[in-house]
């Protein structure tokens, strides 16, 4: 009896806070915008979705968002892997200190940290002042309000989410395995690709998902650091909701974004399940 209640709890949670809201958003996405309270009609049509697919702006924005998030994810992986590897191989005492340093930024508000980057990167900010003072440049270089700034913000903010799962899978790995590969004739780099990489893959996948999913819908970073032309889907969603007050269209945008994220994850999980089956 108690067992059933316990098992039911997470399902109930998902039903209440995920499935029900999703159903509401889905319903709104099928309606038309109207003036009033609530600002949508009771109509049911796919007009909003048709509009999303007919206006190139949305397709371009989705693709840009996917591209930016994917690039940020790869950058995080490229930076995070050596860091996670280094932490996993350091002595026990240093290890907890380094992990602490990775988590430390979370103690400061996310918004505040992004603001700090504005201060660092604006035309008369710390970085430009330093470059001017040293004499590397004659006039400030445009850092803020560029895609570069968005990448800096994304990578900076989401790097810990990459490092922690990577660390978890690398820390468990037996160092003897790498030596065994070398002993059997693999060079250092060969041993890495034959042993370390495949064994770290669960961590790589988890880290990539943890970075990619929030990055794709990220609103604050592109809004504060990105240029006016760097329209991303999070921004579109926000504008449709709060500027145009077109709830149905905004909901449609959200539903499409969700599908965009869910489909690859489901595929990935199926792949992993099959992988595990062949192992078990």
């Amino acid at each position: 009896m108690w067992k059933k209640v316990l098992i039911a709890a997470p399902y109930l949670w998902l039903l209440l806070f995920f499935l029900a809201p999703f159903a509401i958003v889905l319903k709104i996405s099928l309606a038309e915008p109207v003036f009033g309270q609530p600002p949508y009609s009771q109509a049911m049509s796919l007009d909003n979705f048709a509009f999303l697919f007919s206006d190139k702006l949305y397709a371009v924005t989705y693709l840009r968002s996917v591209f930016m998030a994917a690039c940020a994810t790869l950058l995080c992986l490229a930076l995070g892997f050596p860091m996670a590897y280094g932490i996993a191989r350091s002595s026990r005492a240093t290890r907890s200190l380094l992990l602490m340093l990775i988590i430390l930024p979370f103690w400061i508000s996310f918004l505040l940290r992004v603001y700090a980057w504005m201060g660092l990167m604006n035309n008369y900010g710390t970085i430009n002042s330093l470059l001017l003072w040293v004499g590397i440049v004659d006039q400030p270089i445009q850092l803020i309000y560029t895609d570069f700034a968005v990448f800096v913000g994304l990578v900076y903010s989401y790097l810990p989410f990459m490092i922690l799962p990577l660390y978890a899978s690398l820390e468990r790995m037996d160092l003897d395995l790498v030596e065994a590969a070398q002993d059997l004739g693999a060079s250092r780099s060969r041993a890495f690709w034959d042993v370390t990489w495949p064994l770290a893959r669960p961590g790589v996948i988890a880290g990539c998902l943890l970075v990619f999913i929030p990055a794709i819908g990220e609103y604050v970073i592109p809004y504060l650091l990105g240029g006016p032309e760097s329209l991303l889907i999070g921004r579109v969603l926000f504008d449709e909701f709060f500027v145009n007050r077109d709830w149905p269209l905004a909901s449609a945008v959200a539903i499409v974004l969700l599908l965009l994220l869910v489909v690859p994850i489901v595929l990935l999980q199926r792949y992993q399940a099959r992988d595990q089956e062949s192992t078990a």
Binding site: D174, A180, Q182, L184, G185, S187, D194, V195
Partner: peptide
């Protein structure tokens, strides 16, 4: 370096590659 020596080692932990089958381990 170890990969150039005609010396092989059996590790105390055995260090059998967990992601490879018996056959692939031996063929490595």
């Amino acid at each position: 370096p170890p990969y150039e020596r005609h010396v092989n080692m059996m590790f105390q932990s055995y260090a059998v590659f967990p992601h490879m089958s018996v056959e692939n381990n031996i063929a490595y």
